[in-house]
């Protein structure tokens, strides 16, 4: 089956080759976990490794911030824009919503202009200011995701969780139903140090790795490493050694 590779070695392996084409792939995590970096790497790798131009659609975050952040990994986004392989678009959710509803909109025109195949939407959390009604919000997210697919784009969509450690709220999980894949990034506290964990929760239409992996943000971007060995409760943010779990379950009763 054809795959859209993220260019992040360990992640593509977990996804059994990459995302499926024309899908919406949500990356969810607390601030600073690496959602935007993962998305930028997906766009950058697409352009330089797979000749797939891309769009970064940002709400509130200034494009100049992306140019700076990308430069810290050695990715020259300004040069890619000048070459017509990238567009970093800043707008608002209300404009985006109406733009994608109309024919020949701004995003559609820019996607056509550079032949975009990939898009990073950073972040879908801003759509929550359009409505307080969870049913209407889910409908808006669904329409938005379908519009991106209609434009021939494979999307990485970031979504913020308010809590630094631990579980996602029920409201956040609504997005998991409309997305084609769902990746969780989490802070994990082990031995008084904070690590980062990555889990592919869902990949519609394909098998995927179920283990929880460590990852780091290195000077070259995200590197997914080995899985957490000998620990349970990783996604709670405060894992325990399996021996403690065993003891709690069977010995201390």
């Amino acid at each position: 089956m054809e795959r859209v590779k993220t260019g992040i070695a360990g992640l593509d392996e977990m996804l059994h080759g990459g995302f499926l084409p024309l899908t919406a792939n949500v990356v969810e995590g607390a601030p600073g976990t690496g959602k935007t970096t993962l998305g930028m790497q997906f766009i950058y790798s697409g352009i330089v490794q797979y000749n797939e131009p891309g769009i970064i659609l940002t709400f509130e975050e200034f494009p100049q911030q992306y140019y700076r952040d990308a430069a810290s990994f050695g990715w020259d986004f300004r040069a890619l824009e000048a070459e017509g392989k990238l567009r970093v678009i800043m707008t608002s959710p209300e404009v985006t919503r109406r733009d994608l509803e109309s024919m020949g909109g701004i995003i559609e025109s820019m996607a056509e202009e550079i032949g975009a195949k990939r898009i990073l939407v950073d972040s879908l959390s801003h759509f929550e200011r359009l409505t307080r009604d969870p049913i209407e919000l889910r409908s808006l997210q669904y329409s938005f995701i379908n519009a991106l697919k209609r434009e021939g784009l494979t999307a990485v969509i970031t979504h913020e969780t308010p809590t630094l450690f631990g579980q996602t709220t029920e409201g956040d999980m609504n997005l998991a139903f409309v997305a084609d894949s769902y990746i969780l990034l989490r802070y994990v506290e082990i031995d008084s140090a904070v690590h980062k964990a990555l889990l592919v929760l869902k990949l519609r239409g394909s098998d995927h790795a179920k283990d929880i992996r460590r990852f780091e943000i290195t000077p070259r971007g995200i590197e997914v490493q080995s899985k957490f060995e000998g620990r349970e409760g990783i996604m709670s943010g405060s894992p325990r050694r399996m021996a403690e779990y065993f003891e709690q379950a069977f010995v201390k009763r």
Binding site: F62, P63, Q64, E81, R87, V88, I89, M90, T91, S92, E94, V95, D99, I106, M110
Partner: peptide
């Protein structure tokens, strides 16, 4: 110049 592909309403551009 710094954010060349910004497309938004007057209110948002003013805010930015």
């Amino acid at each position: 110049y710094e954010n060349p592909n910004t497309a938004d309403t007057v209110e948002n551009i003013a805010r930015y």
